[in-house]
Design a protein around this nucleic acid. Structure first.
Lengths: 111, 111
DNA sequence: TTGACATATTCCTATATCGGAATACAATAT
DNA sequence: ATATTGTATTCCGATATAGGAATATGTCAA
């Protein structure tokens, strides 16, 4: 069994760094493909392919106008990832707390 | 060029659902491999392989004791993912705000 | 119709993957 | 020494991938 398809969910789609770059670029404002190509300095076919993957997982939306295709990040689709990572937040902050507490004990001279 | 290695970063490592399950399971408390096997109902070699990947990316730590290996999630390594997803938070909350505002206008009878 | 432009798709190849099965290794117990 | 237990590794095979190059599709202009 190979790895799960990049189009199987947001986790897999987002594993590719260029796709993350595209998502960041398209977050604030919709953009035609050509803008992504020049802004991120990628080959046009490469961008089209990445956009295909992102679209298949619902991470971007397209609006067509003439020969142009305006893509835009669908931030909501990133939310599941955010929520999953959030479940670990308490653990790393616990660790920070522990470090902080130890530091405080130290400044007070208590071992 | 194939896909980036699962061991290349946390994003790739976490793309695999079973690895996410393992990370969740190991978040609160360190556990020997056998516990993971029975709790998540996976084959033991499979678990060992997934743990290898997670360890290579720093997502888990191991402590050895006799023949047992106690693994524990290193939550801090998940933080970069959390931070990346957080950059999109304003966009989906904007969307929520827009929906909320529209709803409020409606209850007030303003179009 | 022909040509230019914007985007998408196809074909190619090398490679990393995952599960399964078997086996290796290491520590302890008998 | 041998067996048992806990974990890790190896070999296998099928498959999805990403980039590159070429080409296809679609839209507008002259």
């Amino acid at each position: 069994m190979p790895r799960a398809a990049t189009t199987s969910d947001a986790f897999n789609a987002v594993a590719e760094p260029r796709r993350r770059a595209i998502l960041s670029y398209l977050a604030q404002k919709e953009r035609p493909v050509g803008d992504i190509v020049t802004a991120l300095r990628l080959e046009q076919p490469s961008v089209s392919k990445h956009l295909r993957v992102l679209k298949d997982v619902g991470l971007v939306h397209v609006r067509r106008d003439g020969r142009q295709a305006f893509y835009r990040t669908n931030a909501g689709a990133i939310r599941p990832l955010h929520e999953w990572t959030s479940t670990f937040e308490r653990y790393w902050s616990n660790q920070l707390n522990r470090i902080k507490e130890r530091a405080e004990r130290k400044t007070k001279g208590e071992s």
